[in-house]
Structures are given as structure tokens and as C-alpha cells.
Design a protein around this nucleic acid. Sequence first.
DNA 1: GAGTGGTCTAGACCACCTC
DNA 2: AGGTGGTCTAGACCACTCT
Lengths: 228, 228
Amino acid sequence: MVQGWAAIRAEVLRRIRVRDWPPGGLIPSEAALAHEFGCARATVNRALRDLAGAGVLERRRRAGTRVATLPVRRAMLEIPVIRQEVEARGQVHAFRLLCRVPQVPPLPMASRLGLAPDTVMLHLETLHLADGQPFVLEDRWLNPNVLPDPAPDFTAISVNEWLVQNVGYSRGDIAFSALGANAREAEALGVAPGTALFVTERTTWSPAAAITFVRLAHAPGYRMQTMV
Amino acid sequence: MVQGWAAIRAEVLRRIRVRDWPPGGLIPSEAALAHEFGCARATVNRALRDLAGAGVLERRRRAGTRVATLPVRRAMLEIPVIRQEVEARGQVHAFRLLCRVPQVPPLPMASRLGLAPDTVMLHLETLHLADGQPFVLEDRWLNPNVLPDPAPDFTAISVNEWLVQNVGYSRGDIAFSALGANAREAEALGVAPGTALFVTERTTWSPAAAITFVRLAHAPGYRMQTMV
DNA sequence: GAGTGGTCTAGACCACCTC
DNA sequence: AGGTGGTCTAGACCACTCT
């Protein structure tokens, strides 16, 4: 007899794959499975909870556990700091601070961040290099309230890393898209205008207020990968 | 007193955010926290395990639990079936099967899928529509061994959905990138060649062999979003 | 009302790894 | 060698929701 909640998860997955338990179908209750596998219900619970988290099962109190019909697969996406990403490729990371000015953001951005329309934010533009080649252009708007006085100058440490080290964990949303390079991006990355770029846009919030909005325009050839 | 493992997780997160427990620092053992919070160690374990899964903590037996220094954020990415994605926008999904031919794949793809160089695969091209407008062009290579005899014709149901309903859950990898539209994509999606497209490439494996490789070229404006 | 999953407890054993 | 997290058990109570 194989032991452990992972073994139970594997067995349940097997029965789903071989259609012992078809999509949309109810599977036995935790108590029944615990009896069948000769283990405690908590162990079965652990296995089924894991599969529900992966989107394979749908569980509801009283209604029981069903095999998901709409197999929305969930994948873990790892979002590293840019320096780590470059170094993970075995390349040398460097960056140049292109721009650092207090500025009133465009109206759509101010409203998106929940700020008054005339709030002055810190606008920073950073070009990250991998082995000296342009890697990503970072266009960032920063809420000055999160900065100490005097503000760091961000030439020794990138804004990116300063934030994660000094502001800490917070919530936000990320969006990925493909866009043609605008004039600024084309110049900074050394590509023709209109070249397809992988763009990451991220808004970060502290419990109280918006911290930062950042747009990363990655040099051509960038790929984001994960497993399912 | 707030109860439950989620409350413990919140309190631990709070202490990390206010730098009570600084990045890289050891936090108290499960037993110590259980004593402090007046709960069972299993409850603390549940909370800390969750935070470790989110990348906030790093745990090693004997070495204890540390606040992560390299804040690789992990985000859940949901990868729905295309029809669901369209319908979730309140639009009507339809598709046209443009191409369905047995064909020997290009050498790089055969080797990537671990197939003999002369293996014949089924090559399918499907254009998905949202409210009649091109939404995504699906270019798929399918291992014919996973198909029943006779093979489905994929005009009534998309390959996508037939696979998830009949082959079932399996493992694979996904990559996202931005590429200029090639001639075929430009024509199918009704855009100019070179237009920036968001491209999803996915390889799916059964335990034994490769099932399918698919490349999705999304119409301009496509965004993939998630929370952190 | 009753059966389901969600959670918690107190205790235990174990694998692992640092000391 | 000893302390840590990882896991399992047997039992319990509760929240939810379907009937």
C-alpha cells in the first residue's frame, strides 16, 4: 500500500484520467475514500483540497466533490525581480536611469490609481541591460508618499529592488500583452518602431493607497514560461 | 481573538510587512507560534505552509522558517478553454476549421515532442471568432495515436475542447511571447503583417508520449491578467 | 434535517539537516 | 544528536446548503 496524501492525490487523478470518475460526476465522500484507502479523513481532505486548488475538482459543502467539467487549468507564474531574471540566464545585469522627474500623471492613470487628478508622482524610466544589451525598458510612476525624505536617487539600486526591499509585500494586479514599440521604446531598446514587444503592466497597492504603476517593455525574443 | 489559520496567516504577514520579522530573518518555530497563538501546531503549519507556497516564506527542516529575501512573487494564472474565454466577455464563440491534414512536422518540432523525425501528425488550423470577429488563430499539431478510429472531424467541436473532454488532464508547458504577425496570421486575423500579436505556445504530454503542440496567435488588444 | 466539506485539536512518528 | 518542519491519526465541532 502506497502511503501519503500525494499517493491519494495520484490515485484520484488516475481515476479521473481513465474516466472512472467522469467530468461533472460526483466522487465518493471524504469519509468513504478514507475508509477505502485505510487512512484518516484529514489525509483524504489534503489530497482533494490540493486537486481543487489545481482546478481539477470542484468542492461544495453538502453538495459533495465533482470532477470539474470546465477544465480551467491553473498554472503558477513566477515573477522574479529583473536582476534575478537576467542573472538566471547567466548574464550580467546593469541598468541606466534614463529619467527621474516629479510629474503629474496622465488623467487615466491617476484615476486608475485612485489619486486626485493633480497629484504629483515620481516618474522614472530605467533601461535594464543583460550583458550590455537592452533587456527591458521600465516606465514607472511612483507614489512619492511611500518614499523617505530625502528620496533615494535610484542610481545605485534599481527602483524595482528598492521597493521590494523597503516597501515590502503588497497586493496588485499584472497584465501581459503584445504591443508595437513606440518611438521611445524603439530608441531605448534599439529596435524599429512597431516591433512586437512583450509588455508587462503592473499596479501595486499598499493596504491604504496605490504604491506604483510600472510598464515593462521587453526586448524582442522575450518569453515567459511555466508548467501546467 | 480572531480564530483560524487564515487569521494566523494574516498576522504573520503583518509582522513581515512591518519588518517585525525582516527579510532573510528566522521566524519562531511552529511550536513557539502555536503556544503564542494558543492553537495547535497543525494550525500554524497550515498558515505557514500557505505563505511558503506564495513565496513569502522559505522553510527547511531543521533550519527553520525564514522570510524570503528574493521576493519571487508567485501568481496564479488561469488558462481557460477559448470558448469560455470568449463567453466570459459576453460574446458569442464560433470557430472555423481552416485546415486538417496529416503531415510530417518540421524537424525541430518532432524532436521537441520526442517523436521520430518522419512521424505523421495531424495538422489543424482553427480560427476562433468572438461575435464574428477574429479572436485567435490556433495552429495545432496532434499526435494521431491519441485519436480514436475513425477520428473525429472537429467541425462540430473544437480540437481544444475535444481534447480536454476525451484525453483528459495531463502535464505540459506553456510559453507566452510577442511576435509580429506572419502572412498567414495576418490574413486570418485581418491585420497587417508584422502587427504585434500575443502568442501562446503550449506542449501537452501524456505520461507516455507527446499529445499535442499548439500555438495561439491572439488578435491585437488581447490581454492576459491576474492578481498577485 | 441531515450530510457534506472546512477546520481544529492533541498527540505522534518520521525525514531531514544543521550543529 | 537534536530540533525542525512534514505528515498522519482519531476524533470533534461547525458552516453550509441541498432536500
